[in-house]
Every structure is written in structure tokens, then in C-alpha cells.
Computed example of a mutant assay.
Amino acid sequence: MTTVTPDLLREWRHAFHRQPETAFEEHRTSARIIEILSEAGIEMVTGLGGGTGVVAWVDGRHDGDGAIGLRADIDALDVNEASDAPHASRIPGKMHACGHDGHTTMLLGAACCLAQSPDFAGRVYFIFQPAEENEGGGRVMVKEGLFERFPMQAVYGVHNWPGLPVGEAAVHDTTVMAAFDVFRLTLTGHGCHAAMPHLGKDVVLAACQLVNQLQGIVSRETPAHQTAVMSVTQFHAGDAYNVMPEAVELCGTVRCFDPELRQRLEARFKQAIEATATFHGLSADIDYQSRYPATFNSPDHAQRCADVLTALPDIRQVHRDLPPSMASEDFAFMLQQRPGAYIWLGNGENSAALHNPHYDFNDELSPLGVAYWCALVRTLLGQS
């Protein structure tokens, strides 16, 4: 059996951090997860979620037919790490900039602890999910039949939260994270010499106007009580000082919470592009993709999580009134299928932001995460 200690958790986490792997490429990460679970004598199914996902389970020593799922994301990001830490990424251009190395470590620790002391009734599933960042590994696992193959009544998730002190947590009754859409737009006109712009169709001018116009859809058409964000994050055009380019490409994201608003924003986005393109005599090619739904907790399950956190001796405060985040989370696909809750655990007041090249998961958080998972299981799957 594996004895879980803070030093062992740190060792696991640093090893994951040194070898980050991005969406659906988490082969080394998956292999290490399998190795740790195997050493603890835990049963599992591998090769899920496009090939790198793992679902393991532990049965309680007491009779019971209840079952819950605990989920951790395992993928990294395409970010160059700006750190001189001994455990810094050894893979150029990739790093664990969102703390999934820590999430994986906490769930592995909980699995090993519960396998060693299965003082509960029923079964707990441990879901190690690939490709949370942008590519929807949670959606893939659901489509593959996650909840049919591994029947569970509820499912739970955790994310570390920079700015919130270690020892504090946040639990939302309903809305936690925003829906996530992406777009790629190409405007095509007619290139010409920059000294004679009247001979061409200026895609740069049109694109600049469009970036400003799109903000009006949020600031002037979206009701003030409904939150939305529309951000152009990429602008690609031209190769020379004296050439008006033939085409420009814009990319970005749209986020909100309300499903009806989400549809309206997409419709108005496309109308604005068509109108701008027509006015400037351009053609427009729009690729608009709805990626993740908004993440909503079930209020009663959120309350159970809050009660468990409040009872933990190392949790000083459980926030129930923090605003939801405009970031997104594909755990939403699992919460569409089963009730449950997604909570935040503080990563430290001085932590760099998520997706920042200076970010690092706080190792002080790992034992707290393990304690939370174990307490949640023993509370929800008490002796029957």
C-alpha cells in the first residue's frame, strides 16, 4: 500500500510539472498515473478520453450501492515557463500553467488514502481527464459513455485559485464558470501598393473598425445585469511596409453565462461582420465554434461540499459569495449529465495568475486537497 505524505505529494507533483503534455498527448502523464494507482492496488480502466484518460475506483468496506465521481484534469498548456525552479518544465513551449499537475496529484493522493482506509460504503470513481484546455476532453469522455460504464449518482471537481489564500475555499450555489466560444475570421479584399490605397480594398481598416464595433455588442446591446465578454486576441495581416495586404485574420473568444444571450451574441457577431465586409467590399469567412457550456453547480451538492470544507481543521474560511469567473471549464459537460459541484481552493495570495508563465501550483495545497476529497467521500458515502 502507498503511504501518502506531503513529501510524496510534492515529489509526484514536481515530476508531473517537469514533463508537461498538452491535449490528448498526455501519454507520459497517463503512464505515471497508472503506475501510481497500480502500486496502490487500485483497479482502473485506461485508454479513455481519446487514449490518455483513466478511470479508477475503490470500493468501501461497508455495504452500499452509492457511487460518486471525483475528477482531475491532467493536461498542460502551450506556454513557455518563466521560472528557475528545479522542477520547471523541461519541454520547451509547454508548462503546467493552470495547476493540473496539482489537481492530478491531489486526486492520486486521495485514491491511495481511500484504498488504504476504505471506511465508507459504496464506490468512489477517480476520473483523470485529458484535454481540459480548449479541446474538451470532458466532452469526449461523456460521449464515450463515462456515466454508462461507470455509474455514479454525482460528480465533483476542484480547481486551485490564485489570489485566494491557502486554507480558504470558495463554493458557488449555482453559476461558477462561463460558457466558452471561439472564432476565427478571415476578411479578404484586394491588395495594392500602400502609396495607392484607392486601388485596393483595405482589409486592415475594416478589421480595425470591426474590433471596435464588436465591443458595442457587449457594452450597448447586452443588459447590464448580464455579464459577457467578447475579446479579439489575434490580429494577423501583412508582411511589408509598403504593401496593403490581401487578407487579415482575426481570432478571439466570446463568453457569457446565459444560454439565450450566448445565441444572441453569436448571431449579432455574424451580422456585424457581414455588414462591415459589405460596406468595405470584402468577403468574409467565419469559423465560429461553441466550445464549452457554462459550469453550474447543483445547490444542494454545493452546500454539502461547503459543509465538508467548513469541518476541515485546516480550512479557515469558505467563501459563499465570490463572483463567478469568466474563465471556462469542460467539467461543465459532466455537470450537465450528473448533479455535483465544482469548488475553488486557494493557491495563495501571491500566486501568479492562471495561464501565466510565472505561475506554479502551491505544494502547501496538495495535502488540503487530499483531505477534502477523502472527507467528501466519507461524508457522502457514509456507512449504510
Rank of each mutant, 00 (worst) to 15 (best):
R123Y: 04
A353D: 14
E39N: 14
A56Q: 05
D330S: 08
S38T: 15
V203H: 08
G382M: 03
W12G: 06
V155F: 00
D307H: 10
P313W: 11
M244S: 14
I34D: 10
E329V: 05
D78T: 12
Q271L: 13
N362E: 01
A306P: 04
D360C: 09
A267D: 11
V79S: 01
P245I: 09
M141W: 06
L261C: 05
L335S: 07
L365H: 01
A371D: 15
G66E: 13
G51I: 01
H355D: 00
A178K: 09
P293E: 08
A67N: 05
D75S: 10
R10G: 06
D287Y: 08
V254A: 08
I286C: 07
L365D: 03
A76I: 00
A110K: 13
W373T: 09
V176D: 03
P367W: 12
E43F: 00
Q226K: 15
C98P: 07
R139W: 12
I273K: 03
Y292K: 05
L199G: 00
A115Q: 14
T253L: 02
V124A: 03
N160I: 02
H27Q: 12
L205I: 14
L309F: 09
E132L: 07
I33V: 15
R149I: 04
W161G: 01
D173K: 15
P293A: 05
F333N: 06
N80W: 11
S117G: 11
G122Y: 00
P223A: 07
R18H: 03
M1F: 11
V158G: 02
V45C: 04
V79A: 03
M230K: 02
L37S: 09
G137E: 08
D258P: 00
P367R: 12
A284W: 11
P197Q: 07
D360V: 05
P165Q: 07
C374R: 14
L381N: 02
K201Q: 15
R13W: 05
V218S: 04
A82I: 08
A332W: 10
C113P: 01
A206Q: 12
L210F: 11
Y372C: 00
E39D: 15
G51N: 01
N160K: 00
A195K: 01
L376D: 04
L164Y: 10
H100F: 07
D101H: 11
V211D: 04
N297C: 13
A375C: 09
I33Y: 06
